Simulated assay, not measured.
Amino acid sequence: MATIDLFSGHADLYAQYRIDYPPELYDFLLSLTGGRQQAWDCATGNGQVASVLSLYFAQVDATDISPQQLEKAVQKPNITYTVCPAEQTPFPDQSFDLITVAQALHWFDIDAFHREVRRVAKSGAVLAEWGYGNAQIDPVIDPVFYHFYEVIIGPYWDSKRKHVDQGYASIPFPFDKVVHQNFTIRRNWDLDRFLNYLRTWSSVQKYIRQHGSDPVLWMADQLKTVWGTSEREVRFPVFLRAGRV
């Protein structure tokens, strides 16, 4: 299966405007994880998850297929970044207490990734896979946003995006003691911050490449009056599944 990389071309934008995850999510993961020696954050992007894990684990290994993304990654003395695919890593057998993959699982060869997880995980280690759904703001803005997502940008999403919309329900998870948990990301953003977040989407970047114009400007025009100049709370629903290897 060919490796899919849809984010190298806008690593700068991704580093500035991609969202992070709530403390409650990490508290939940830590409650499941016994050992704190070594963690692997797979498809780390700019190291958003790895940087948090580094506060709790002696060593964090973070991987991504994009050198451009890793060039912008958060630097910590106990994080080691490696360019490699999720399905084939250089790590020794039985290395990790915790393995995480955030908002990236749907791009993988799932069976091959899970085989690699079984190889590099310690006995009883935890694998956590999660993603987040679409923004929720208010009853006036939300219909405009969903029109943008489904109609204007809809044709430019890779077909694998459907797995995020389905909360990974159709992706196998062949591990033990499986638990599911939901969280909410809450951010107070002005309109400019929200629009730049949209520009991190692979579908928006594909639209720009094909048409030479920025579709987010349509959103800016639609929302500039109703959003106003103040910040608004933007919420993202997070779905997580975890199990023991």
Rank of each mutant, 00 (worst) to 15 (best):
E71C: 08
S159K: 14
Q37P: 01
F173K: 01
V178R: 00
G47H: 05
A11T: 09
D190I: 02
P85Y: 07
F148W: 08
D214G: 02
A86W: 14
L55D: 13
F173I: 00
I79Q: 06
L127N: 01
L240F: 04
P22F: 08
V60N: 11
S202A: 12
Q75H: 10
E231H: 06
V226C: 14
R186I: 01
V245W: 01
D214W: 01
T80W: 09
I185S: 04
A128R: 01
D12G: 09
L105Q: 12
N182H: 11
P143T: 09
T3C: 06
T44F: 02
D61H: 12
L55V: 10
A220L: 05
S31D: 15
H211L: 04
R244I: 09
Q48G: 12
A102I: 07
V245S: 04
A15Y: 02
S8Y: 10
R36E: 01
V234F: 05
D41Y: 02
A39E: 03
R115I: 08
Y26Q: 02
L30R: 12
E24N: 01
L70T: 10
F239H: 07
P23E: 15
S202L: 04
Q94W: 03
D165E: 09
L240W: 02
T225S: 10
S170R: 13
F194Y: 14
P139F: 10
R209K: 15
F113I: 06
P22L: 10
L98V: 08
V151F: 05
Q16K: 15
A39Q: 03
A58Q: 15
E231M: 09
E231A: 09
I137S: 01
Y17V: 01
A2P: 15
P143F: 12
H147D: 13
V238Q: 04
G154S: 07
R115E: 13
R118S: 15
V74E: 10
E129Y: 05
G133N: 05
L55Q: 15
R186Y: 02
D61M: 12
S54R: 07
H180L: 12
L6A: 13
N196F: 04
R241E: 02
I171G: 05
D138W: 08
V216M: 00
T89Q: 15
F113K: 05
Q94G: 10
Q181F: 04
F236D: 00
D158R: 11
D109T: 11
P139I: 13
K224E: 07
A43H: 02
G243V: 03
D158K: 14
F145H: 11
D221F: 07
M1E: 12
E231N: 14
P143D: 10
P85A: 09
V234C: 06
G47M: 00
P155I: 11
V49Q: 00
D41V: 06
P215D: 00
A62P: 03
L25D: 00
